[in-house]
Amino acid sequence: MGFLKVSSPHAHGPMSTARVMRLVLLATIPGVFSLTFFFGFGTLMNVLWASITALAFEALALKLRKRPIGFYLNDYSALVTAFLLGIALPPASPFWLIMIGTGFAILICKQLYGGMGYNPFNPAMAAYVMLLISFPVQMTTWLAPKGSFAGDLLGPIDALRYCFGFGREAIDAITMATPLDVLKQNNSLLVKDLWEESAQFGQFAGIGWEWANIGFLLGGIYLLYRRVFTWHAPISMLASLTVMSALFYDGGSSASGGSPLFHLLSGATMLGAFFIVTDPVTSAVSNRGRLIYGALIGVLVYIIRVWGNYPDAVAFSVLLMNFAAPFIDHYTQPRTYGHKLKDQQGGKS
């Protein structure tokens, strides 16, 4: 037997793409747990159904594209997309809504562009935005959190039933506007009064939302610790969101956009910061670029949340910045060893 003829290096590190994806899946557990704890089994149902459909769509696309199916399903990237979409959708969304979402994400946003690594937009967020625009009613129906209403939380059987359209009318009884919605609709009350008036609000932000966000924050810290991504993009996004909300807090007047803490722990802030903004495929590549990318997302999130039409804005902001990523890359190439910073910039323009 002859010896292999391969280019160096011959050693390889422990990291693999599948492992990265598995770590990401693992890191969603605290957040999903919080969501389930406060909103019932709806989110789990979403994630489950999204995973099944996403894998099916992925396999279908690979089959059509004549690619090895097992090899690519093994990279877990479809599952990550499914998890993120499932978490982002309102709990116990109807099965067809989820299916359209995963189909759009996998077939249009990912495989049509050439599969993993080639997609210019984050598939989960693109699908979310598509659904939000197409089905605004379903997409804005959030369940009421535990403790804000008298009834029981959604159990697993109910979640399954609602998901597949049986007795969906009953779900209206337990829906409630999200805290971000409430704040957006407010134009007469001081923030403090609003807080007392509405049942949705908890200690720092909305009931349940604050804990879901803390859960995703924990997951993100775990991923940082495992060096799955660098701190630059998420931290700069959170920082810029904090700065924006502090600037326009306005002392909690009726025109206030909400406190920094409220914004950090509301809606999809932490999910976005640690699971969406850090999506490497669609973000900027250099550390400097990621700082800019994250900061601009934070600014956009605040702008759309407070002055835009939609209550939450992470998906829109991320998509907008996906457009800008190549542009940012072009201007943020790091200084290479042995080059002066000036040369490097001059060489590019």
Binding site: K66, P68, G70, F71, G117
Partner: peptide, 16 residues
Amino acid sequence: VEDLIASDRGTAAKSG
């Protein structure tokens, strides 16, 4: 390897 066609699947899957 991303451009592997399905007929190569056996070898790719095996080495994978």
